[in-house]
Amino acid sequence: MKYDAQAFELISNKEIANGIFDWTVKNKSLSSIAQPGQFAHIAVPGKTLRRPISICDTDGENLRLVFQVKGQGTEIMSQLKEGASVDIIAPLGNGFKIEKGKKYCFIGGGIGVPPMLYAAKAACKPLVITGFRSKDFVILQDDFKSIGADLVLATDDGSTGIHGFVTDVLKERINEVDEICACGPFPMLRAVAQAAKENNKPCQVSLEERMGCGVGACLVCACKVKRANGEEEYLHVCKNGPVFNAEEVVF
């Protein structure tokens, strides 16, 4: 038995930016085994599908989940009160592989930033590049600073931090790092993977796709990968990912 669906207590629910919510769920059993880049599959009252939310952080006692309201399901989640019971299957999927002694660059774009916090905690003095649309959507800056990350903030409109994309920053500083881990919108991941390839740096990307079961049975969250022999096939974000070697992903 590897999986379990259990009810856990929501001990804190705060809106930390425009439409972005920060949950803390009392969850000793799951938070002690969760790996960076894995996700939690959350049952939403009244909805047929669970919502996959990446694990932002854990302290061994509590699970921290940061999500953006995108539709009805996340809207319902955002309205849950402290003390509510939340049904969670976690930790699911394959996370980031963080090796000791390597200098990492973690890149997050928008709501792809939260999983980078837990990942960055696993590495030594990492470079962290966070990108947002504008100052209204900026999150988790103090959290990254508190773990000793070399933190860069960029916004698309220049309303705070550097005016530009995360890839602009990456290209300038790519020689400082050994490996790159990224999570964010697909075009951003494509650009990050391209920059990594041009500079011969290994790169791991966390993908997103509309998901069903979350455990690899229903085969809906397909993503195309290229095998070493050149053959392309559909793997699944929930079970084979969400983190993939960028070299394998067909962008």
């Binding site: 047929t48 599908l49 229903c218 809906v220 993503c223």
Partner: peptide, 18 residues
Amino acid sequence: GNPPPRIAETPSGILNAV
């Protein structure tokens, strides 16, 4: 199988096209 997305939520159900 089909290219993604392969699933959409509906009132009290889902659509799938795996």
